[in-house]
Amino acid sequence: MFRSENGVSEHRRVANEINTAVAHPARMYDYYLGGKDSYLADRVAVQKVLRVAPEVRLMAWENRRFLGRAVRYLVADAGIRQIIDIGVGLPAAGNVHEVAREIAPETRVVYADNDPMVLAHANALLAGSGPTCAVPADLRKPEEFLDDPTVRELIDFNEPVGLLLVAVLHFLTDGEEPAGIVRTLLAALPVGSFLVVSHATGDLCPEVTAQVATVYDTATSTLTVRSHAEISAFFNGCELVDPGLVRVPVWRPDDKSPKGHTKVWIYGGVGRKI
């Protein structure tokens, strides 16, 4: 799985493709979560963020917990057996295929990301793990992803799919038309499929989020925070599952009284295509 045609390991080739001098959101997110797959530029950027918004580390963890609860809902409650996770980021505890297969081992999962480091780590994690794959894909080109033969081999687009766009749409600018991208992806899925979105918002702490966004201006992807109404629009054509689009710690929490949720400026929700 890791060998290129000339025998050079995928990890070695990927290392040559990574720009370590510029902060990358996936590596920054890994560092927020306490991971070690980051470089000096990433760590410097994270420290700048935490100086103005120390709650961001909590937010990263709450977003990760939301992802796990959403996947459990899809598989255990909604009966979904195939999942597409776009903008997956670096592997961490409670990966989607691991959470899903604790409930239904036959669940098929496609991970997609445009970062070579993410893909190298994902492929290493997935070696021998069953009906799961990681494919290179740019969210800005949804048609190419949908036409990918590996995706088509693993995912049956005649059966309901769980589409995960978790903490990724805020790395698209308005000019890149994220709503249109979501529409294209949803159009390829049958009725009864589910959309999972989490997204940073400027509604709750506008001055702080503006300062955080300036740090990402020098990263490989900028940060575009959006309002509750703008994020809700991604679910057009879907019926939101209770409790709707809310701060991620209070979306079906394991603890009925989550601590620190007022500090979190990420909305999350799950919608069923109708």
Rank of each mutant, 00 (worst) to 15 (best):
89 G>V: 07
45 A>R: 01
247 R>L: 09
207 E>K: 07
97 H>N: 09
202 G>L: 02
85 D>W: 13
79 G>M: 09
230 E>Y: 04
139 L>D: 06
172 L>F: 01
185 L>W: 03
91 P>F: 10
184 T>W: 02
213 A>M: 01
48 K>Q: 15
147 D>Q: 15
145 F>E: 02
174 D>G: 10
118 V>Y: 05
268 G>R: 00
87 G>T: 08
24 H>F: 06
19 N>L: 02
262 T>G: 00
176 E>F: 05
99 V>R: 08
209 T>D: 12
225 V>E: 14
163 L>A: 00
222 T>I: 13
40 L>D: 15
199 H>F: 05
126 L>G: 06
17 E>C: 04
80 I>G: 00
255 D>A: 10
42 D>W: 04
106 E>Q: 13
5 E>T: 14
95 N>P: 08
24 H>W: 04
217 D>N: 11
216 Y>W: 02
220 T>R: 07
71 V>P: 04
108 R>H: 11
144 E>G: 05
194 F>V: 07
92 A>R: 09
141 K>N: 14
64 R>W: 03
258 P>K: 01
138 D>T: 05
62 E>M: 11
78 A>E: 08
144 E>K: 13
38 S>K: 08
110 V>P: 01
164 L>F: 04
179 A>I: 11
135 V>W: 02
268 G>V: 02
161 V>W: 00
228 H>S: 14
60 A>R: 02
11 H>I: 11
132 T>G: 04
116 P>W: 03
49 V>E: 09
93 A>P: 01
4 S>C: 11
156 D>P: 06
5 E>K: 12
152 R>Y: 07
110 V>M: 02
62 E>N: 08
129 S>H: 13
218 T>D: 15
34 G>Q: 07
160 P>T: 04
149 P>V: 12
136 P>S: 10
217 D>F: 00
78 A>Q: 09
20 T>D: 10
205 C>L: 12
251 W>H: 06
182 V>P: 08
62 E>C: 04
67 L>V: 05
123 N>H: 13
31 Y>Q: 11
7 G>T: 10
124 A>E: 15
46 V>S: 09
60 A>S: 14
65 R>A: 13
30 D>M: 03
181 I>R: 11
219 A>T: 15
46 V>N: 09
232 S>H: 15
